[in-house]
Design a protein around this nucleic acid. Structure first.
Lengths: 206, 206
DNA sequence: GTCTATACGTGGATAGAC
DNA sequence: GTCTATCCACGTATAGAC
C-alpha cells in the first residue's frame, strides 16, 4: 500500500515525475518540452536524459509508476474476504476519494491520450485495475447478487456512472466534490442489486 | 438532419476535413503535420492555409462541424412528442449505431484531448448535445419516471454505461458490435425506471 | 484562389567537460 | 552521475509567382 506517489522511485526520479505529471496534465504531453520539466523539477537536462533515456520513456515510466500505485491500492482493498458487493461499494468510494484528492493522477490515467505518445502501450482498460473491476462484477454475478446481463454491459453499468462523474468533475461541470455524490451513486447501484435478488428468487422458485 | 459528414462545407473543405479527421484519430493531432494533411487530401498547403488560417483553426472547424452534425441528429430525434423514456431509449440506440458506423467521428468527439490543441474550447460535455441528454433525464424525473437522485448522478447513471461501452469498443476490448449490447443496456435502464415507478407509487400513497 | 519554395522558431537529443 | 552548450531535424507558416 503506497500513499506516497512514485514510491518505486528515488528522490530525483520523484521530483522529475511529479513535475512531469503536473505539466502533462496542465498543458499536455506535446506542449511540454523537456526544458519545461527541467525548470519545474530543478533537475538538469543531462540528468533527465541519463535516467529516462528520452521523453517518451519518461512518460512511460510515469504511467507505469502510477498504475503500480493504483494496483497496490486496489489489491489491498480487494484482498479482504468481504462479499463482492461490499467490495464493489468500497471500490467506488475509493475511486471518488482518490479522484478528488489527486485529480492530476486520475486525469493522467483516465483521460490522457496515451496512445498518441506511447503507441505501444496497451489501453488503460486492458490493464490490471480494470480487469479487477470486471472480475469483481462477474463474481457478484455468479453469486446471483447482480442481474444476468452480459458481463461487459454489467461492468459498464456498475462502474460507468462513477467514471462519468469523475470525468465531469475533471471537466469542471460538477459543482460539488465527488464524495458528495457517493450516496446517490450507491443507491442507484442498489436498484441493480435488488434486481439481482428478484432474479435469484425467481430462479429458486423455478 | 445531415447524414453527409461536413454538410456545412464545400467540396474542398470536405476533402481536407475528412482527411484531417482520419489522421487526427489515427496518429493524433500533434503527430499529424500539415504536410500529412496535404498528402492525404490532395489539397495544397497554400489552399489549406488560405481556407483555415492555421492548423489549430482547422481542428476547431473540424470539431465544430462534427458537433453541428450531431446536434442536428439529436434535434430530429428529440422533436418527437413521445414520452421522455422513449426518447432516452432512442438516443441510446442512436449513440450505439453511430459509434459503430462512424467510429472515427465518435473517437474524435468523445475521446480526443481537445484542450491540448484547442485551449479555448469548452469541454464537450458542456456543449448542447450533452445538455440535451441532461434535460431529457430531468424531464423524465419530473414525470416520476426515474428515481429521485441528484440529476447529475442520474444522467451519469442513464448514459454513463453506454458511453463506457463505446469507449471500450474504441479501445478494442469489446468483441461484438455495439448494437449487440443494446438490449442488455436497455434492460439495465428498465431497472432504474421501475424504481422510478415504485417511488411514484409510494408518493401517491402518502 | 491556388501553388511551390523557403524562412524561421522550437525542441529533442547529444557531446564533452567536470 | 551530473551539468551546459550546442547541433540538427522537423514542422508551421509565409512570400511571392501564377
Amino acid at each position: 500500500m503506497s500513499l506516497t506517489p512514485f514510491a518505486d522511485q528515488d528522490a530525483t526520479g520523484r521530483r522529475v515525475l511529479s513535475a512531469a505529471l503536473r505539466l502533462f496534465v496542465e498543458k499536455g504531453y506535446f506542449n511540454t518540452s523537456v526544458a519545461d520539466i527541467v525548470r519545474a523539477s530543478g533537475v538538469s537536462t543531462g540528468a533527465i536524459y541519463h535516467r529516462f533515456g528520452d521523453k517518451q520513456h519518461l512518460a512511460e515510466t510515469l504511467l507505469d509508476s502510477l498504475m503500480r500505485g493504483i494496483e497496490n491500492q486496489f489489491a489491498t482493498l480487494l484482498t479482504g474476504d468481504s462479499d463482492p458487493l461490499t467490495r464493489i461499494r468500497a471500490l467506488i468510494r475509493l475511486m471518488l476519494q482518490q479522484a478528488e484528492a489527486d485529480p492530476q493522477m486520475v486525469t493522467f490515467i483516465l483521460y490522457a491520450r496515451h496512445r498518441e505518445f506511447l503507441p505501444e502501450h496497451p489501453p488503460i482498460c486492458a490493464l490490471r485495475p480494470f480487469e479487477l473491476m470486471r472480475d469483481l462484477v462477474t463474481e457478484a454475478q455468479r453469486a446471483s447478487l447482480l442481474p444476468d446481463l452480459d458481463p461487459l454491459v454489467l461492468s459498464a453499468q456498475v462502474f460507468g456512472p462513477t467514471l462519468r462523474l469523475i470525468q465531469a468533475r475533471i471537466d469542471g461541470v460538477l459543482p460539488r466534490p465527488l464524495p458528495d455524490y457517493e450516496a446517490d451513486l450507491l443507491r442507484a447501484l442498489d436498484y441493480l442489486m435488488q434486481e439481482g435478488d428478484r432474479n435469484h428468487a425467481a430462479a429458486a422458485m423455478a
